[in-house]
Lab assay of single mutants.
Amino acid sequence: MASQGTKRSYEQMETDGERQNATEIRASVGKMIDGIGRFYIQMCTELKLSDYEGRLIQNSLTIERMVLSAFDERRNKYLEEHPSAGKDPKKTGGPIYKRVDRKWMRELVLYDKEEIRRIWRQANNGDDATAGLTHMMIWHSNLNDTTYQRTRALVRTGMDPRMCSLMQGSTLPRRSGAAGAAVKGVGTMVMELIRMIKRGINDRNFWRGENGRKTRSAYERMCNILKGKFQTAAQRAMMDQVRESRNPGNAEIEDLIFLARSALILRGSVAHKSCLPACVYGPAVASGYDFEKEGYSLVGIDPFKLLQNSQVYSLIRPNENPAHKSQLVWMACNSAAFEDLRVLSFIRGTKVSPRGKLSTRGVQIASNENMDAMESSTLELRSRYWAIRTRSGGNTNQQRASAGQISVQPAFSVQRNLPFDKPTIMAAFTGNTEGRTSDMRAEIIRMMEGAKPEEMSFQGRGVFELSDERAANPIVPSFDMSNEGSYFFGDNAEEYDN
């Protein structure tokens, strides 16, 4: 993207840094990872977990959730003011799984939030270390993106479920800051804005008074975040219109849905970061690795190297396929839920299948599930090659597409044709070009129609051997075009429920 120079890199967003050079960025990201790792080690000690239990991804998720809940100030305040039966607002906890007599047992633990905050700050040299908290939120978000298709949420806001490739980060909490905003897809931002506008339509006082002023500035800020994701002048001009509207209503909703559809071809720039579970960072720190000293990046080879040398386990339900569970977590670790499966298959070195073909449910185990038949197995999170994460949407291309997802959002900077089903997408653009945004709409449609099938995206960008740390010898991959490109292809993934 041309304006790259004016933006802070995501590592800076990730670490609240002012302008830093590459070495400083690597050190501050490393410091953040160190903090998460030290916190995780301490929690495993508190909970008396064995090494194996500490490497269980379900335990990692519970521990991450506990610290996120302990620092969720708004919710904590709300819980104190609106006490609900049987919930102690000062405590947080969740299921911890232990191996007892050759069987997995679930144990519900409860801790004072104050105590968890103390352990977290102690692991982070006394700081609140917001960057580390956001990092864990993005890992949870990436896992949700890989596990669930947001059909219901899309339909509720009037969008087409086939636009799911635009929904990265749709389950990120509001408090995820600049680093969170960077990884949100165009569809996620559109959905947040539509929800806001709908509230304004239904509630006369939404934009009024002292609160209304705050609401208005939040609305304009979200519009600017979305505008910054678009790469064409016409899309940005249309966002200006939406932002400046005196009284946002149905016309703005129409414009936003139009823009979301246009992003299936004229893709937005959305950041991709490899955020790993805390149970990967903990053992690495415990083994003596100093992330701050060595430096770390979320968008280069580092996460690949770390996963190459990590042992992570997962509980497996009786009829689940461990290899499929591994694929789910591998995609989440690489922030690749909406990437082209052919690119992923090449990088991973084994075939990556669409969601609907995987015999696996989510990673988390519900409290009512029976533990008797639970097994555990090693997650295979290694890769054959590594590639640089991208934040450009890439230019655009036609490809055989599917009944489910009709476009992709690249996660890796790797040369390819970008699949999208042009006739299906263009069919949504018939007729409606009147109104105050008509010239911009016409211009956007013209650009979409001009998108050429034979153009290559990320020209000359390749993948790298894991021994090639400096990215000196790019390998331009070859793809098996007979395979499906979309992950949520004609899909039956479970729906995400809060």
Rank of each mutant, 00 (worst) to 15 (best):
residue 97 Y to E: 11
residue 352 V to K: 12
residue 446 R to N: 10
residue 20 Q to T: 01
residue 341 L to S: 08
residue 103 K to D: 07
residue 370 N to T: 08
residue 281 Y to N: 10
residue 331 M to I: 14
residue 301 I to L: 14
residue 416 R to Q: 09
residue 178 A to Y: 11
residue 289 Y to W: 08
residue 133 L to W: 04
residue 243 R to D: 08
residue 170 S to R: 07
residue 497 D to R: 00
residue 11 E to M: 11
residue 470 R to D: 01
residue 244 E to V: 13
residue 12 Q to M: 07
residue 359 S to Q: 15
residue 422 K to A: 15
residue 16 D to K: 01
residue 242 V to G: 06
residue 341 L to T: 13
residue 126 G to Y: 06
residue 249 G to S: 07
residue 351 K to Y: 09
residue 29 V to D: 12
residue 474 P to Y: 00
residue 360 T to M: 02
residue 303 P to N: 06
residue 234 A to T: 07
residue 462 G to W: 03
residue 60 S to V: 08
residue 260 A to P: 05
residue 217 S to Q: 14
residue 20 Q to Y: 00
residue 277 P to F: 06
residue 425 I to V: 15
residue 220 E to M: 10
residue 425 I to E: 03
residue 108 L to R: 07
residue 482 S to T: 12
residue 205 N to C: 15
residue 268 G to V: 15
residue 323 A to P: 05
residue 105 M to S: 08
residue 181 A to W: 14
residue 393 G to Y: 02
residue 416 R to K: 13
residue 311 Q to L: 00
residue 71 F to Y: 15
residue 445 I to N: 06
residue 41 I to R: 10
residue 313 Y to K: 02
residue 131 A to P: 15
residue 160 D to T: 07
residue 56 L to K: 03
residue 293 K to Q: 11
residue 36 I to C: 05
residue 135 H to D: 07
residue 156 R to P: 06
residue 401 A to M: 00
residue 479 F to S: 13
residue 265 I to P: 12
residue 167 M to C: 07
residue 108 L to H: 10
residue 468 D to M: 02
residue 410 P to V: 05
residue 170 S to I: 03
residue 485 G to D: 00
residue 38 R to M: 10
residue 216 R to D: 03
residue 430 T to R: 15
residue 85 A to N: 14
residue 376 S to M: 02
residue 14 E to M: 02
residue 282 G to C: 09
residue 403 A to L: 04
residue 113 K to D: 07
residue 239 M to N: 07
residue 351 K to H: 12
residue 63 I to C: 14
residue 217 S to R: 04
residue 345 S to T: 15
residue 372 D to W: 07
residue 474 P to K: 00
residue 142 N to E: 07
residue 11 E to A: 07
residue 302 D to A: 15
residue 306 L to Y: 07
residue 247 N to T: 09
residue 295 G to N: 08
residue 270 V to W: 06
residue 475 I to S: 03
residue 253 I to F: 12
residue 481 M to L: 08
residue 66 M to S: 09
residue 358 L to C: 10
residue 232 T to K: 15
residue 367 S to E: 03
residue 482 S to A: 00
residue 400 R to L: 03
residue 253 I to P: 02
residue 11 E to N: 05
residue 331 M to V: 12
residue 324 H to R: 05
residue 27 A to L: 09
residue 343 V to A: 09
residue 231 Q to F: 01
residue 458 F to H: 13
residue 137 M to W: 08
residue 300 G to M: 08
residue 330 W to H: 05
residue 263 A to M: 11
residue 395 N to F: 03
residue 263 A to Q: 03
residue 130 T to I: 02
residue 276 L to N: 10
residue 113 K to T: 06
residue 322 P to G: 07
residue 111 Y to V: 13
residue 302 D to M: 01
residue 24 E to I: 12
residue 361 R to E: 02
residue 108 L to N: 02
residue 41 I to D: 07
residue 259 L to K: 01
residue 440 M to L: 05
residue 459 Q to Y: 03
residue 20 Q to E: 01
residue 409 Q to H: 13
residue 4 Q to M: 11
residue 86 G to H: 15
residue 34 D to V: 13
residue 325 K to D: 08
residue 311 Q to M: 01
residue 226 L to C: 08
residue 263 A to I: 01
residue 422 K to Q: 11
residue 209 G to L: 10
residue 390 T to C: 09
residue 308 Q to W: 11
residue 494 E to C: 07
residue 146 T to W: 01
residue 395 N to T: 10
residue 444 I to A: 05
residue 339 E to A: 06
residue 177 G to M: 12
residue 371 M to K: 07
residue 32 M to S: 13
residue 426 M to K: 03
residue 175 R to A: 02
residue 138 I to P: 09
residue 56 L to R: 01
residue 474 P to D: 00
residue 70 A to C: 11
residue 313 Y to A: 10
residue 230 F to A: 09
residue 133 L to N: 00
residue 243 R to S: 05
residue 484 E to I: 13
residue 326 S to R: 13
residue 71 F to A: 10
residue 257 I to A: 04
residue 426 M to I: 15
residue 331 M to Q: 12
residue 84 S to V: 04
residue 9 S to G: 00
residue 479 F to R: 11
residue 45 T to Q: 05
residue 464 F to K: 00
residue 81 E to P: 00
residue 366 A to S: 15
residue 212 G to R: 06
residue 125 N to D: 09
residue 205 N to E: 02
residue 94 G to P: 04
residue 455 E to T: 14
residue 91 K to V: 00
residue 58 Q to A: 07
residue 339 E to I: 03
residue 470 R to Q: 03
residue 76 N to W: 15
residue 89 P to W: 14
residue 38 R to S: 11
residue 70 A to T: 15
residue 425 I to R: 00
residue 297 S to Y: 08
residue 462 G to L: 14
residue 98 K to R: 15
residue 72 D to W: 13
residue 159 M to P: 01
residue 8 R to P: 08
residue 222 M to P: 00
residue 400 R to Y: 03
residue 52 Y to N: 12
residue 278 A to I: 13
residue 93 G to R: 07
residue 69 S to G: 15
residue 89 P to K: 02
residue 282 G to N: 05
residue 254 E to P: 07
residue 15 T to C: 14
residue 401 A to C: 02
residue 317 R to W: 05
residue 188 T to K: 08
residue 224 N to D: 12
residue 4 Q to T: 11
residue 340 D to Y: 09
residue 327 Q to F: 08
residue 392 S to A: 14
residue 384 R to A: 06
residue 447 M to S: 12
residue 359 S to A: 14
residue 72 D to K: 04
residue 64 E to V: 12
residue 436 R to G: 03
residue 154 L to Y: 03
residue 245 S to L: 03
residue 492 N to W: 02
residue 419 P to A: 14
residue 126 G to M: 11
residue 299 V to Y: 02
residue 290 D to M: 13
residue 475 I to K: 05
residue 116 I to T: 10
residue 159 M to E: 03
residue 403 A to P: 05
residue 91 K to G: 01
residue 425 I to Y: 02
residue 36 I to V: 13
residue 378 T to G: 06
residue 112 D to N: 15
residue 242 V to N: 05
residue 3 S to Y: 15
residue 456 M to V: 08
residue 234 A to Q: 03
residue 36 I to S: 09
residue 494 E to F: 00
residue 330 W to F: 08
residue 303 P to G: 05
residue 282 G to R: 07
residue 19 R to W: 03
residue 246 R to V: 06
residue 24 E to R: 11
residue 375 E to I: 05
residue 314 S to V: 14
residue 289 Y to K: 13
residue 331 M to N: 10
residue 61 L to S: 10
residue 359 S to M: 00
residue 411 A to V: 14
residue 125 N to G: 13
residue 137 M to G: 01
residue 487 Y to T: 01
residue 338 F to R: 01
residue 109 V to C: 15
residue 124 N to D: 10
residue 89 P to G: 12
residue 260 A to E: 08
residue 187 G to Q: 03
residue 215 T to F: 01
residue 272 H to N: 07
residue 465 E to Q: 08
residue 286 A to W: 15
residue 287 S to H: 11
residue 321 N to L: 07
residue 241 Q to D: 10
residue 144 N to R: 01
residue 145 D to G: 12
residue 300 G to A: 09
residue 200 G to V: 07
residue 19 R to A: 04
residue 95 P to Y: 08
residue 281 Y to V: 09
residue 364 Q to K: 02
residue 223 C to F: 10
residue 391 R to S: 03
residue 303 P to M: 11
residue 23 T to W: 04
residue 408 V to Q: 05
residue 72 D to A: 07
residue 269 S to P: 13
residue 211 N to Y: 11
residue 297 S to A: 04
residue 69 S to M: 06
residue 497 D to C: 09
residue 450 G to T: 15
residue 345 S to L: 04
residue 16 D to L: 01
residue 333 C to I: 05
residue 249 G to E: 08
residue 401 A to P: 08
residue 480 D to S: 15
residue 440 M to D: 12
residue 56 L to P: 09
residue 446 R to G: 10
residue 388 I to K: 15
residue 153 A to P: 06
residue 215 T to V: 14
residue 404 G to H: 08
residue 336 A to R: 06
residue 349 G to S: 09
residue 470 R to I: 00
residue 59 N to A: 07
residue 319 N to Q: 15
residue 226 L to H: 11
residue 288 G to H: 10
residue 38 R to E: 05
residue 359 S to T: 10
residue 347 I to L: 14
residue 79 L to Q: 10
residue 365 I to M: 13
residue 464 F to R: 00
residue 274 S to Q: 06
residue 68 L to H: 14
residue 217 S to N: 15
residue 403 A to C: 10
residue 194 I to E: 09
residue 447 M to Y: 09
residue 159 M to D: 03
residue 89 P to I: 03
residue 332 A to H: 09
residue 2 A to D: 00
residue 333 C to V: 10
residue 410 P to K: 01
residue 300 G to C: 07
residue 111 Y to Q: 06
residue 196 M to F: 07
residue 57 I to F: 07
residue 463 V to F: 03
residue 195 R to S: 07
residue 376 S to G: 15
residue 30 G to F: 10
residue 445 I to H: 02
residue 346 F to N: 06
residue 420 F to M: 11
residue 215 T to Q: 13
residue 156 R to Y: 08
residue 94 G to S: 05
residue 143 L to I: 14
residue 13 M to E: 08
residue 304 F to H: 05
residue 258 F to A: 05
residue 257 I to M: 14
residue 40 Y to P: 03
residue 158 G to F: 06
residue 406 I to M: 11
residue 410 P to F: 01
residue 126 G to A: 13
residue 281 Y to K: 08
residue 396 T to A: 14
residue 205 N to A: 13
residue 112 D to F: 03
residue 36 I to R: 06
residue 166 L to Y: 01
residue 483 N to D: 08
residue 310 S to V: 12
residue 27 A to M: 13
residue 457 S to P: 07
residue 437 T to R: 00
